[in-house]
Nucleic acid binder design. Sequence first.
DNA 1: CGGAAATTTGACATGTATCAAGCCCTGTGG
DNA 2: CCACAGGGCTTGATACATGTCAAATTTCCG
Lengths: 250, 250
Amino acid sequence: MPEYLSRRRPLLHETRCQTCSLSSLCLPLALELEDMDQFDAIIRRRAPLKKGEPLFRQGEAFTSVFAVRSGSLKQVTIEGNGNDQLTNFYLPSELVGLDGIDEQHYPGSVVALETTTVCEIPFDRLDLLSEELPELRAQLYRSMSKEMREDRRMMRLLSRKTADQRMASFLITLSDRFRRRGYSPYSFRLSMARADIGNYLGLAVETVSRILSRFQSQNVVAVSGREVNILGMPQLLALAEEDIQEVASS
Amino acid sequence: MPEYLSRRRPLLHETRCQTCSLSSLCLPLALELEDMDQFDAIIRRRAPLKKGEPLFRQGEAFTSVFAVRSGSLKQVTIEGNGNDQLTNFYLPSELVGLDGIDEQHYPGSVVALETTTVCEIPFDRLDLLSEELPELRAQLYRSMSKEMREDRRMMRLLSRKTADQRMASFLITLSDRFRRRGYSPYSFRLSMARADIGNYLGLAVETVSRILSRFQSQNVVAVSGREVNILGMPQLLALAEEDIQEVASS
DNA sequence: CGGAAATTTGACATGTATCAAGCCCTGTGG
DNA sequence: CCACAGGGCTTGATACATGTCAAATTTCCG
C-alpha cells in the first residue's frame, strides 16, 4: 500500500464522538452508544482555526453551538464605544455559543487563541434530537445551568475580590480545568496574552504583570513568559479567598 | 350568601396561565391554548412570601424553578468567608432557580424583598413536558440563554464601568423592566435597600447614596427614600455609557 | 412614641489605573 | 545565522476613584 494512503488522516473516525478522548466531558457524555451515533450524525467538522481567526463574529446569525476539540478561544463583546470586554475563555470539551439562542445572534465574537479545532453542532438539529434523547436534553440544560453558575462566580470575583485574589482565582480555575482534562494542574502554558487576562479579570495589564511578578517573588508560582508552574497550591488557594486581616490564622 | 364565601379568593382561577396578566412575558408565552392547559397542570401554587422570607436557601436540593407572579426577590450567594454576593434581582414573569439544574442544589438563597407570590414549576415535570412541546422547550432554552447574556452584561458593568455608570445603568435597566411590564418607566419604587444595590453593583453603600444624591442635584432623577423619578432619561443614558472625556460632543 | 435600622454626609486612606519608559522575546528578511 | 523591528511584557512614579471609618439624621415599625 502506498504510504500516502495509509498516512491519510482518518478524519471521519477521529471526529466520531465514540472515539473522542473528550467524550466523557463533552455534551454527549451521558448517551448510550447507539444514541451517540445519532448525535454524531448531526455534527459538522470544521477546518482548524489559526491563532487570531474568529469562529464567528459578534452579531452574526446564530445557527450552531460549537464544542472545542483542541486549542482554546476567547469570547469578546464590543459595546457602543470601543470598549471591549472579554467574557470567557473556552477549553476543549466546552460549549461555545449557547448565549446566542435567545436573540438568534451571537452576542460576542469568539476568536482562537492558538490553532484550534471545533465540532459544529447545528442548533435546530440539536434541539430536535434533544426531543428524542432525554439524556441529551438533560445535559444541554446542565451545560447552560453550569455556565450561569460560573458567570455568577465571575460576578463575585469582579465585584468583591482584590487584584491579588482575582489573579490567584484565575490560576486556580485554569489549573482545575487542566486537571479535569488529564493535564498537569501544576504546570501549563497560558494561551492568552497578559492583556487578555487583564481584560477578563477587570484589571490593567500592568497590574496583571506586577502581581505575577510578586507571586513569583513569594515562590507561589514560577512564571516564564506564558509558562506557568504552580509551586505552592495551598498558598495560592489562601491568596484567592482570604481577606487581608485573615492571614494571622496559621 | 354570607360575605365570607363570596369574598373567598378564587385562587385556582387566578393562577391559571390563560388568565394571568404575565402570560405574554412568562415561560408559556409561545404556547397554544391547549398546550397551556398542560403546562398549567404541572404548576403548584405557593402561599405568598413575606418580606425577608426565603423562597429557598443556598444548598437546598433543586426540585423546581419558580416564576415570579408579583413582588420581587433577590438572589444571594455566600462563600466560605462571610462575604456574600447579591447576583440578581427578580421581577414578575422572571424565572428563578435555573442555575440549580447542573448541581441539583440551589447555588444561592433567594429572598423576597416585599410580599411576593410565585408559581412553582417542578423541574422534572417541566423537562418531560418540554419533550412534548417544542415551543416550551424553545422558550426554556431562550430563558437560559437570555440569563447568560445578562450575566455577561453584568460582568462588563462590574469590570469596566465607573460607579456613576453602574448606578445609571442600574436605573435604566430597572426602568426598562418596569416599562415592559406595563408600569411607568419614569416613576417607580425600589423594593431593595441601598445596601442591596451596593452589593449588586459592587459598590459601598455610601457610594450608592452619594451618587443618588449627586444625580438628584443634577436634576437627572428625583429620589425620596425608595421612590424614584427619572427626570432626564437622555442624561441618564449618557451617564451610563459615556467615558469621562466624551462629554464634549454636544 | 422610642429605639433600631437605614440612609446620608464628611474626612481620610489606599488599591489600582494611568502615564511613561525600557526590556525582552519572537518572528522575519537579508 | 544574525540583525532588526514590533509587539508583548515588566517596572516605576503619580493621580484619583472609591472604600473605609465615623457620626449625624431620617425612616421604619412595633
